[in-house]
Amino acid sequence: MTSTIEQAGGSPAPSADPPDRPPGAPPGREPRSVRWRRALRGQRTLLLLAVPGIAYFLVFHYAALFGNVIAFKDFVPFQGLWESPWVGLDNFQRMFEDAAFWQAAWNTLSIAVLQLVFFFPLPLALALLLHSLARGGVRKIIQSVVYLPHFLSWVIVVALFQQLLGPTGMFGGNVAFVTDVLTNPDAFKPLMVVQIIWKDCGWGTIIFLAALSQVNQDLYESAALDGAGPRRRFWHVTLPAIRPIVILLLIMRLGDILTVGFEQILLQRDAVGPEAGEVLDTFVYYQGVLGADWGYSAAAGLFKGVVGALLVYSANKIAHRLGEQGVYK
């Protein structure tokens, strides 16, 4: 089980891999280039196969990553990346003094925390429910239904919610409580969470259902023979079996905590205004692309990226401290 979880989040788990020095490649003193040429002999096809994908990552990730230098520049598009003047940390300083930035950061964090509390546990609960009750064909049908919303775009989901809760919607037009729920700034954050629950709760069960189906049934039997009731079996067999996955997902969510549904919020921000509806991603978009304040919004984006990477790193460290596998080693 441990080795299966290890790489579930896409970890290379380098230490677990066998040393992959090709047979016959001496560890000796030859120059690097000769060693590489020898090592790559007969691997030309593999190299060629890797080229398109690697080119993609170099251009659209690494070159783009490098483009973050504009966060330290007063970027003027017609002057270009190289000619625009350096401004040091001015953009960051301005950002930290900008109330709109802190408002966006606050909105982002509060939506993320609401998601963590109200959305994160739900797929696990639903998976346990499905696992304990539904069987055969009915279970497949229910799974098909609950997976479906994941495949609908945010545009569609927002349209569905408007058709239900909007002023001319099924409930919006009739139930007093929901009349202004789509345009009420106070309702915005809970609404975002409800929408993501509707869209992704069912899909989230898929990984838990897989983990539940891999639990060794003998463990349940031995526990039952030892006198453990359903509750204790759940506590001592089921939970330990799915704990690594829960922790893995939690780490990934923590690292992503500054990302809360960009498309979802972009679609609905204008209905409540930036005070309630701005998050860091939409802040970057409105400041940078629409406001043409390039360097400034790149600084906000870079800040978000650095914090996110630090969060993944520390969450993973903590997981290791607690004796868990984490995302990577």
Partner: peptide
């Protein structure tokens, strides 16, 4: 490849590319 998962480049730099 996996590093890009940890540190996505961001919207604006992507736009510039």
């Amino acid at each position: 490849v996996l590093f890009t998962f940890l540190f996505p480049p961001g919207m604006l730099p992507g736009y510039l590319v």
